[in-house]
Deep mutational scan, measured.
Amino acid sequence: MAAGGDHGSPDSYRSPLASRYASPEMCFVFSDRYKFRTWRQLWLWLAEAEQTLGLPITDEQIQEMKSNLENIDFKMAAEEEKRLRHDVMAHVHTFGHCCPKAAGIIHLGATSCYVGDNTDLIILRNALDLLLPKLARVISRLADFAKERASLPTLGFTHFQPAQLTTVGKRCCLWIQDLCMDLQNLKRVRDDLRFRGVKGTTGTQASFLQLFEGDDHKVEQLDKMVTEKAGFKRAFIITGQTYTRKVDIEVLSVLASLGASVHKICTDIRLLANLKEMEEPFEKQQIGSSAMPYKRNPMRSERCCSLARHLMTLVMDPLQTASVQWFERTLDDSANRRICLAEAFLTADTILNTLQNISEGLVVYPKVIERRIRQELPFMATENIIMAMVKAGGSRQDCHEKIRVLSQQAASVVKQEGGDNDLIERIQVDAYFSPIHSQLDHLLDPSSFTGRASQQVQRFLEEEVYPLLKPYESVMKVKAELCL
């Protein structure tokens, strides 16, 4: 049975990233139509530049190519590739079939990587351009969430054990800070992308030097003109047959890092959902379990974690691919890159769409948070109580021993009897502590235990987050809708 299948058929496997999760716009960027249309555009740009620099290419040939950029006979191309065992030459023939007058000058002087690699770089750039505003929107939604809850005390956790208090907004800023680093890295790697350009079979530009009869300047002009037509500021000066596969490492490393950030955020949300302090959106008709109707599973956060793990592992592909590119190139890269580049971007696209949807509907339960604080705060307040007693004339050592005994009794009630923490009640009825009984409410005010959390939130948002989001103001209103 021949390899390949009808990918629109229910009898043929289709990647869930495309069929179930990723956005239509990201799927289109990695589609065959987008790819092969870009090949034709690159052939047109090459012909236009070659004509401008004096090669015998007519206006009629150029116009014929322009008129057929979208006229792609995919069936013919597939048949040609089956016959020739070469995808680029299959599309040269297919393009030439609908451009008979231009057929002889299509791909003039070029090698397969002229269309293959340059198209990949265009796709990487455009895919990054799709991700950047999506990530900015996630940051914006979380920034709104953090600002609104900047002063809401909550129990902090280290080692997932109760620690000092923080605020809900401050905790959210930990998430935002990681995503801001990801946004900066995505922008950097996007701006650092260079075009492969017009380089020939081993990167020496020998074929173009021959076409222009040894004119170095025209060869350099050709490279520059096509690079500018493709919208790049610069091209690699040095290439082998391909652009260095280190570029793929750079791009997928940034995406993998984004995956790590999203995994951490969504894990926190899942843990908070278990504590009943916070939940992701839950639709009115949504079913959490087929057997347990009360369940409210954090399905979206779980999906993000599941896909983020996949995204983090994909960076190993370009690392290994770059390491086995012998001399000017081997074909070890080809099949692998067809999979890992598309999957990385479709996965990143999915987790950003999902995280935006989550961040637009996060639900906080202040009463649950308050109750958990009441359970733990008495123990945390013991040092403040000791200091207040010393100020009232008591002995630190005597007070410490009193607190120690009462704390152990209260802990026994919590752990052995399943009761509430009654340390404060014990202190309130103990005559030894009568000098500070009137101060206990103040000493137990949760806001006095959150330090500068709310001020940190305000400063972080104003100095770091809002300036970073400013270039994306025009796209901030787009909502994230999930079908599944």
Rank of each mutant, 00 (worst) to 15 (best):
K479S: 02
D223W: 15
L84H: 09
T354F: 12
M181T: 09
L255H: 14
T167S: 00
L307R: 01
A256Y: 00
K82Y: 00
Q428P: 00
E376F: 09
S474R: 13
R396N: 15
A230Q: 02
R188P: 00
D32Q: 06
V29P: 15
E328W: 06
R196L: 08
E148W: 04
W43Y: 08
L124A: 05
F160V: 03
E481L: 13
T119Y: 00
R190H: 10
E473D: 15
C305L: 08
V465S: 04
K134D: 14
Q458K: 14
R337A: 05
D6C: 12
L44Y: 03
Q221K: 13
D420A: 08
L331W: 00
I427M: 12
D120T: 06
Y21K: 14
R452Q: 08
A103N: 04
I139C: 00
D59Y: 09
G104F: 01
I403A: 03
E464F: 07
A392V: 15
Q416Y: 13
F232S: 01
K35V: 01
L468D: 03
K470D: 11
T58N: 10
E148C: 06
R125D: 04
H217R: 02
L461T: 05
F28K: 09
A77T: 07
R337W: 00
M299A: 00
T158F: 05
M26L: 08
G240S: 11
D422Q: 12
S306M: 11
L362A: 02
M476H: 14
L377S: 06
L55A: 06
D32R: 08
Y432P: 02
I176M: 08
D73C: 02
L128F: 13
L124R: 03
L183G: 08
C27V: 11
L53M: 11
L484Q: 15
Q408M: 12
A335Y: 12
E462F: 12
T350M: 05
C98W: 09
L53W: 06
Q325N: 14
D11Q: 13
L193H: 07
R296T: 12
H93P: 01
V29E: 15
A110R: 10
R459N: 05
L179P: 01
Y294F: 13
G393W: 06
A49D: 11
L482S: 13
D430I: 13
R396F: 00
K66Q: 05
K147I: 02
E370N: 01
F327W: 05
Y432S: 14
P366S: 09
